[in-house]
């Protein structure tokens, strides 16, 4: 009995350590005070202020568009890469290919950032394209998100029953139809969770984005970071609350997708 109580207390402490700060942010988003850390009564005025903050809204909209595009592109390319890694038994340079796909997961973002910046600057000088901003940020995010999708898809395909695909082909399906009607529906949950992973990674990336964003574009994390340096406004608490809500729904959705796998 005593042991069980102790275990519960430890558990409660652990969860408090993890989630108390987040709970505080949510509570303080309804703070009346101008100061972030002083409680002065309930108010929704900072929520209203955020809704009318043009800079914040356009940064959020940019981040959302980048996240949608990069997650979708990374899902397609990562699916192809994961498929090859799981299915093509041996080809020249297979090990190298595998390492290259996984490398962005462990590569310091600063290194990726500086190398991408060099590439984009060079390409802009030679071809006049791409303009730094939305497109360059999206490309950079796709580059490191592919790895995460590929790993999830590969893991799912490794224990995939190959005889299902053979049965489809035996029944007259071309390899492509087999992929669309049998393989893809069965690994869709893995692709879905890969997409969600890529989406959240893109949404809160700061370091890489700062290297490739150019002068005009400002994503949400960049705006938050710069406004924190200038002195925080309680709107930050509101924004944090919104992001927590979004992240929580993504997490729940991803868990649900993974459990639904046949």
């Amino acid at each position: 009995m005593g042991h069980a109580r102790l275990a519960l207390a430890v558990l409660a402490f652990g969860y408090a350590f993890l989630y108390l700060p987040i709970a505080l942010v949510i509570v303080y988003s309804f703070n009346e005070s101008r100061l972030v850390t002083v409680w002065a009564g309930f108010s929704t005025k900072w929520w209203t202020a955020l809704l009318h903050n043009e800079a914040m809204l356009s940064a959020a909209w940019l981040s959302l568009r980048i996240a949608l595009l990069s997650a979708s592109a990374a899902a397609v390319i990562g699916l192809a890469a994961g498929y090859v890694l799981a299915r093509v038994p041996a080809f020249f340079g297979r090990t190298l290919f595998g390492s290259l796909v996984i490398a962005p997961m462990v590569m310091p973002e600063v290194v990726m950032g500086i190398s991408m910046l060099l590439l984009f600057v060079g390409s802009e000088r030679l071809l006049g394209w791409p303009p730094r901003g939305f497109l360059t940020i999206a490309i950079a995010h796709i580059t490191f998100s592919i790895a995460f999708v590929a790993v999830v898809v590969q893991a799912r395909l490794v224990d995939f029953d190959r005889s299902l695909e053979e049965a489809a082909m035996d029944l007259g399906a071309t390899p492509w139809t087999t992929f669309l009607t049998v393989t893809l529906p069965l690994i869709a949950p893995a692709v879905g969770s890969g997409w969600l992973l890529a989406f959240t990674l893109s949404l809160d990336d700061l370091i890489l984005t700062q290297f490739v964003s150019g002068a005009q574009s400002q994503t949400l994390p960049m705006l938050v970071y710069s406004s924190v340096r200038l002195g925080v406004d309680p709107q930050i608490n509101v924004l944090a609350t919104v992001i927590v809500a979004l992240a929580a729904s993504a997490l729940i959705l991803s868990g649900w997708l993974t459990r639904r796998r046949a």
Partner: peptide
């Protein structure tokens, strides 16, 4: 197929 390979 031995495992029947029915599409789940």
């Amino acid at each position: 197929f031995q495992s029947y390979a029915l599409f789940p």
